[in-house]
Design a protein around this nucleic acid. Structure first.
Lengths: 205, 205, 205, 205
DNA sequence: AATGAATGAGTCTTCATTCAT
DNA sequence: GATGAATGAAGACTCATTCAT
């Protein structure tokens, strides 16, 4: 469902991500997104059945963008330390590159669960959570291996995974793209944050 | 302004913090908070001129609770490493102890700036930002000293401060208090996160 | 009821008249009036049972101030022309002198009749209307006599009375007292308007 | 802006004028107007952004209706006396014919200025004031000429213009259309008021 | 595919009024 | 006499959603 998107839909999702990222999903009306698209809300409702569905699409895209880049790294990498170095760096790079998407996601799921949801919406949310959990599993697996082999400090695994991902997500909060910024600047940020992440895992530098 | 609060007001702020934390500030109506208090909307509006002002009060209380605990540590501590150990541990303890307040704060300020705000609201927001900046300064000062003396890894200071605080805030997102949980459990979490924080700063463990 | 007022009550009525005149009765809250008095609304409610009652007091005072000045003129005057000259001049003088009161009155009674009114309020409104009618009767009597004796043009009496009073009331709309203004200035206005009024009655000048 | 109106909007403005005229603009809720239209609030808000904007539309229509009828008279008329005769008569006829609109306007602008107004609202108000001033200018020009040529009594021009228009507006306060009333009845009223107006200007009858 | 009109439920806010002190 | 807290009803406005075209 959430995965297949044609060009029209993607255009809408991009606009929505932009708006949601800048003003917060709650503060943005369908009309706002339509205006951003230079269209009327009818166009949006032609492609998405509800605002909720549109938000789900944004989130799913965010998680998928991450998953699709990180999963191959895990598959390829030989040892946990090496894997984690690449994962952390790439994660931050993706955050910086798709700032709009990931900023939306850094808001959590409270809003989703405490609203009257249709069965359809619930299904979509579950899909997203599933994907997100799968993404976390990538980290969990690598970290667990690293702890077992002694290269990472031994700490409660869930705490470690969640805190680490929060740390890597942090630019979605404090980073905002500026005119002069180059790819090198973004790489530097990714590099520093990856170093902090490894330090947080107890890797002796 | 934001600092002085009588009992009636504090009661309302506590209720608001609870609601905001559980459902998100946007999703909570003044009626919801009133219901939580077993009172009517009017009671809230008698003490706070707007929802915005109430949200400001919650945020200000959150930052103040933090600041008041951490500032003395900085004042007392002899060296950066020792200071940071205590700061990180205490910060997490506070997050876990006043979960409602700090969860509200982990949402950022977009909502504030992208809304039509009255001069009064703007003043309050500025007060909060000032306090929050002062809080960050506590960390910035200690971290800078640590970097200068070589006990912390040398990295861009702003990135380091913001990421570190985000890391220490992370329990506000993934932690939820459960019935059986003891103080020891919370201390363990604080201990682990503090260790991760120090690792992130490049301290050789 | 409406006539007897002690000092406290008069002070409140004055403040209310000021506020009502400047912002319109609907736009003024009891709190606004209280603020104008440097007091709380409790004080107002101690003396007046409702906003409606307060408004009635203002209106009654307005009509009474008029009636009390004009009635003696009618009683004294020998002929209609002479009477009307004095009445018109004095009416305008009073309007200019008690601008706040009379501006409130120039709003008509729609608001009163289209609201859910208590029997008490209705009684007060009737009292005011009675007084206002009595005031109009003063004009009606003099005008009728003038028409009969041929000194005023013969026209429908009700139309004539109402239009004439509206004309004399007009400064309550377009006049606003200014710092430099003297009694002479006000007298000049009264003189001109009285001349217009007599002209409107068909008096050959 | 305020001038262009399609059929939907005009229908709403008519309903609003009716309601405002009968109960006063403050006493009428958007829901009242919607009920009058057999529709919902939403319909009104689809066409007008606020109650204020709707009120502006009513006022603008009122002034425009007047201006469009009176301006040609001024343009055509040869001498001030003749012009004023027609202007006064027509003005009253319009008041009686569009009673709802003009009654709304006889309320003044206090409410507009003493409210928190958006830039947009202010712009609309200025447009109305401009038009109203232009309307007054029509009278001012004719009256000035009449004074200069000695056919009207020489008096302060502003006082004269404002009082005269107030006099001509007076039916909007005391006149209410009744079932049996014919065009002849209304013409009689207009005729009498016009005569009073000319008398007020000092024309020897 | 897309638009504009319309709906209706919900939200913030105001305010006259009451009441305990 | 006067205050401050609290209530409850009402009103302006928003916005996701539906529908005819």
């Amino acid at each position: 469902m959430l995965a297949e998107m044609n060009k029209s839909q993607l255009e809408i999702v991009e606009a929505a991500a932009d708006c949601f990222a800048n003003y917060g999903a709650d503060a943005v009306s369908i009309d706002d997104i339509a205006r951003h698209l230079n269209a009327t809300k009818g166009r949006i409702y032609h492609h998405f059945r509800s605002k909720s569905e549109l938000l789900c699409a944004v989130r799913m895209r965010s998680v998928s963008l991450m998953y699709d880049q990180i999963a191959p790294i895990v598959a390829r990498a030989s040892d946990p330390l090496d894997a984690m170095k690449q994962m952390a760096f790439t994660h931050v790079q993706l955050i910086l590159g798709h700032h709009s998407y990931h900023r939306v996601v850094s808001e959590d799921f409270r809003v989703f669960f405490n609203r009257s949801t249709t069965p359809d919406e619930r299904r979509q949310i579950e899909e997203i959570i599933e994907k997100r959990t799968a993404y976390e599993e990538l980290f969990r697996g690598v970290i667990q291996k690293g702890m077992d082999s002694g290269v990472f400090a031994k700490r409660p695994i869930s705490l470690t995974v969640h805190s680490l991902i929060t740390l890597l997500n942090s630019p979605s909060i404090w980073y905002s793209p500026r005119p002069g910024q180059t790819q090198d600047d973004r790489d530097a940020i990714a590099h520093d944050l990856a170093a902090m992440a490894l330090g947080a895992l107890g890797v002796k530098v």
